[in-house]
Simulated assay, not measured.
Amino acid sequence: MAPILNINNLYKSYGQTEILKDINVSIEKGDFLVLVGPSGCGKSTLLNCIAGLEPITGGQLNIAGQDMTNVSPKDRNIAMVFQSYALYPTMSVAKNITFGMKVRGVDKSVQDQKLAEVAKQLQIEKLLNRKPSQLSGGQRQRVAMGRALVRDPALFLFDEPLSNLDAKLRVEMRTEIKRLHQDLHASMVYVTHDQIEAMTLATKIVVMKDGIIQQIGTPAEIYRQPANLFVADFMGSPAMNLIPAKVSTDGNARRIEIARDGEAPLVLTDRRGVDLPKDVIIGLRPEDITDPGSRQGDNLELADVHVDVVEPAGADTYVVSRLGGKEVTARLQAETEVRPGARAQFAFDLGKATYFDPASGARLV
C-alpha cells in the first residue's frame, strides 16, 4: 500500500531565501506525524506546503498515492484545523460544521447524519444552536475539529491547534485529539513547538531546525537516541543534561572525567566498552541521575555531588548541581531529603548515557 503522505526532496524558497531544504518524509495510513521545532524552523511552512496553501519551489508531494505537487488545496482531500479556529461568527455551531458540505452540494440528509455522528463523538450535541461567541476556547476547538471530521479526508492537518488554550484545557484537548486518532485510525499531521505535545501525541516525530530535518523517529527513539545535541536539548522537559567530559580507557571500560568548580573532578566508569574519543559531551536524562537504591543495573555509579538548588515538583524533586561548567538536573523521589548547599549522593545510570561529538554535535553512541 502506498504511503498516505510521501514528500521527496522538497524545497521552499522566498526569493533567494531558502526556508525548507531537502525535506523527505513518509507516513503510512493511520500514522500521527508531529512536526516540532522552535519558532521559525519551517514547520508551519511545511504544513502549508502539504495543504497546498504555499507552492513548493522543488521536489514532489504525494497524498494517498496521488501527485499533489501542483494541485489546488480544495482538490487535495485534506482537512485543516487552525490555531485561530476560523469559525464563522454569524453562523450556529451546526452551520459552521456543515457549511463545507453545503458548499460542495452534499445531500441535506447526509449533512444531518454526519453532523449527528461528529457532535456525539466530540460531545457537543448541546452546543449545536449556539454561536461561536457563546463558546469557551475548548468548545470552539471542538467545533473546528468537528468541521474537519465531517470531511472524512485522507489527511488531517493541525496547525498549533492548542496554543490558544490555558494549560489545563490544553492537556484535556490533547487527550481528546489522541482519543480521536485512536478511534478514527485517521492519518494526521500536527504542528507544534511544544515537545511534550509532540511526545504524547505522535506515532512519528519530525524535529526541525532552520528548515532542515534533524531527526525522524518514534517518540521513544527521539527521546532515548537523539541524533544530535540540538534534538537532545530540545526534546524532554527538563532537557537532557549535556556535560563536557574527558574519556580515558580503563581495560574494557571507559573512565569519564567531569570537571567540578573548586574540587576534584567527578570520575564515572562506563562499563559498556563503547568506543569514544578523548573529548565528549555526555548526555544523561534527569531521571538517569537519581536516588541511590531507586534503580538497579550493573552500570550504576554512585557519587557525592554539591547541591545548588532544590525544586519540589509534587511527584518528584528536581535537584540542580553544577558539573563540567553546566547546570545539571537530577530527578529524585519526592520524599528524598536534600538541602541547598549540602552534599548528596546520586546514582548515575551510565547504561543510559548518550555521547556526542563536541565539534559536530552528532551522537557518537
Rank of each mutant, 00 (worst) to 15 (best):
G30V: 13
Q215R: 00
S133E: 14
L10N: 03
L302R: 13
M101G: 09
L350H: 04
R140A: 07
Q139W: 11
L350R: 05
G59P: 07
P153T: 06
T192G: 06
V81T: 08
F32R: 10
R260C: 13
F32I: 05
I212L: 11
A232S: 06
R322T: 12
T90F: 11
Q195T: 09
L155C: 10
E18T: 14
N299E: 02
M80H: 06
A232T: 02
A342G: 04
L5K: 01
E327G: 00
G251I: 07
L284Q: 02
V103N: 08
V71P: 06
G42D: 06
H193N: 13
F348G: 00
D298L: 13
V319D: 03
R271P: 03
Y14L: 13
G105M: 09
G40Y: 07
K178T: 06
N164E: 03
V319Q: 07
K209M: 14
E160I: 07
A315R: 14
T269N: 07
G262T: 11
Y85Q: 02
A253E: 14
D304M: 13
K126I: 00
P244Y: 02
K29N: 11
A344F: 10
F99K: 05
K278S: 11
A119T: 02
D75W: 08
I216W: 00
L184M: 10
P55Y: 05
N9C: 08
V274N: 05
R322S: 12
A154Q: 15
Q345L: 10
R174G: 08
A94R: 13
I7F: 11
R179H: 10
A330M: 08
P312A: 12
A144F: 08
D298K: 14
